[in-house]
Design a protein around this nucleic acid. Structure first.
Lengths: 136, 136
DNA sequence: TTTAATTGTCACATTATTTGTTACAATTAA
DNA sequence: TTAATTGTAACAAATAATGTGACAATTAAA
């Protein structure tokens, strides 16, 4: 992950968790992160598809959590935004004439899966509520 | 990590581990990965700085492992090539007028460190020799 | 019914990162 | 003296990430 998507998503959700039932709008959220509101709206679409937020269009609209923050794991957030594996990408065309080239991507698939699982598993144990409690 | 650096590095080292004491050159290695030799040489510089390989310039030169593959952990390889944390980057200027904006980067630093430590710790237990044994 | 605020979304611009390529000085063995 | 090789620079190309302006559709309130 060489992007800020996880940081942006957890920032959004931390704000929402502090005002359950309130419809916060993307301008307000963007003001807290200090990024363009479109960045926030784009991330909100992903979080909506993941079932973590619900949104209301139109005047007095906005977004709120789809469920209590104690039911949202950091793993769910991570899965919603992640786009590469922890150990990165594989090379596309290793040489099949070479024993190492021929087998390496299968071995990496296994190692990459194990490593991702480890991270998922740890994040599953942490909730958004726990994360939010750390803020004064 | 949305790059192929770990995959490239472990590919290089797996090849070297199969021929201990031999000076393999960057063209040969590049042929197995099927990337440009400069990509390989650039990664070799990093692996050299990390104390994992030694190299010899000039005719009949090349690179070999700096120590037995049983003494090289996957964590050492990962550390040599990693350039971002597992959970990505933080936003640069969260709004300090906002309680969440003011505190979030410290909380993320902690979470990111924990997550990275987890991965390091797991990779410390695996050696290049173990990885190499999986190849026929 | 009209107005204002808001999401969802598109198109494009800009910046950053990653990968590829050519070239060559310095080094070393034959 | 020649040929092969690393180390490295400079630049090109491709891909990914972030920023921006615009606007249709929707909704609440005036």
């Amino acid at each position: 992950m060489s992007n800020t998507r996880f940081a942006t998503a957890i920032h959004i959700l931390t704000l929402l968790a502090r005002q359950p039932g309130e419809w916060l709008n993307s301008d307000y959220i963007a003001g807290s992160i200090q990024v363009n509101p479109v960045i926030v709206r784009r991330e909100l679409i992903i979080l909506n598809e993941a079932g973590l937020v619900i949104s209301k269009k139109g005047k007095e609209g906005g977004v709120q959590l789809a469920k209590p923050s104690s039911k949202i794991s950091l793993a769910a957030i991570y899965h919603a935004v992640k786009n590469t594996e922890v150990l990165g990408k594989k090379n596309l065309n290793p040489n099949s004439q070479c024993p190492v080239g021929r087998q390496i991507n299968d071995r990496l698939t296994q190692l990459f899966l194990e490593t991702d699982y480890l991270v998922s598993n740890a994040l599953t144990k942490k909730t958004l509520a726990d994360f939010g409690k750390q803020f004064k």
